[in-house]
Design a protein around this nucleic acid. Structure first.
Length: 308
DNA sequence: TCCCAGGCTCAAC
DNA sequence: GTTGAGCATGGG
């Protein structure tokens, strides 16, 4: 039950670019305000010239929490300067200046991107919304009822059929087994967060006897989770949109063989093998540096909006 | 109606 | 190790 204002003078930040760039799927805009869930409570937020006007459903959500969630404590100017290596990324940065990589909850981020595979953003929002409405705790705020993101225990209790009923399709069994792994403590998301990028990614995509430890988590999902919720800013997720950008604007980064595989991925004809994905992402990380993930997000956002 | 989507799994080479 | 089919579903 708090209202507070955050002074953002001299702090490059765009709330709409950040919330609408495909890194989080639960924020909703209504009447000049954005509504979302942070830390088990509701946050209502609007950006003005030099301030963020905030209201929240709980006292736990304060200036410090909001600052951290939107990564306002990061030196964006320095970060962007470090990735502006060419005219393509420079143009994207200029167009969407102020877009930040949020620091999301790991569990919500992991489930969201597992569910996101081979789907599109509007539909992803629908699937996640269904999961929240059916399995999430309810919170009252300003006379309306909001649903929190369901915990691992609640989803582990659901049957695969029930989960599929949320529109998840074949992803339902991935959600079920990952929920069970987290609920039982077999998979520790907080521990994964503590490792460096390479090790964390190794754990997420590990295999036992030639089979995935956690079904539904491939290299791309892992990169999204690491970038958006584990502070691994060098992670460079490559989906069809990014394959398109790389094939068209960055052919010089890869040899002929990799460029050809990028092109077939970009046109939806084939998906990338784990080894190919790693070669591509590694080249991109090497080129853009420690904040390659920021470059990726600006390029992704621009590419997606080109369609209109 | 058809095509596509913040890909992944699994069998077959 | 690489490749290719199959996958559930709904938005455009």
């Amino acid at each position: 039950m708090g209202q507070f204002t955050i002074n953002t003078e001299g702090l490059p930040f765009s709330l709409p670019y950040t919330l609408d760039s495909g890194q989080a799927f639960r924020w909703r805009e209504s009447g000049n305000f954005w509504y979302g869930v942070i830390d088990g409570g509701i946050l209502k937020i609007r950006q003005e010239e030099h301030a963020l006007l905030c209201s929240s459903s709980s006292d736990g959500i304060d200036t410090q929490k909001v600052f951290h969630y939107f990564a306002l404590d990061e030196d964006l100017e320095r970060i962007l300067a470090s990735v502006m290596k060419d005219r393509h990324i420079t143009e994207a940065v200029q167009m969407y200046y102020g877009l930040r990589i949020m620091k999301q909850d790991v569990w919500e981020c992991l489930l969201s991107f597992v569910v996101a595979t081979n789907s599109n953003i509007p539909r992803i929002k629908g699937m996640i919304s269904n999961l929240c409405e059916r399995y999430g705790e309810k919170v009252e705020f300003e006379g309306e009822t909001y649903s929190l993101f369901p915990g691992a225990a609640a989803l582990a209790r659901a049957t695969v059929t029930e989960l599929a009923g949320c529109g998840l399709g074949y992803r339902a069994r991935y959600v079920k087994s990952i929920s069970e792994a987290v609920d039982s403590g077999w998979m520790s998301l907080e521990e994964i967060r503590l490792h460096d990028y390479a090790r964390a990614r190794e754990i997420l995509t590990a295999e036992i006897l030639g089979k995935k430890t956690f079904m539904g988590i491939g290299p791309k999902v892992a990169d999204c989770v690491l970038l958006f919720s584990c502070d691994k800013t060098s992670a460079f997720p490559i989906d069809v949109w990014m394959a398109r950008v790389l094939a068209r604007d960055y052919p010089g980064l890869f040899d002929a063989e990799l460029t050809a595989k990028l092109a077939s991925k970009a046109s939806g004809q084939a998906s990338l093998s784990e080894a190919t994905y790693e070669r591509l992402a590694s080249a991109a990380r090497g080129y853009f540096g420690d904040y390659a993930g920021y470059a990726q997000q600006y390029l992704f956002h621009r590419e997606r909006l080109k369609e209109g």
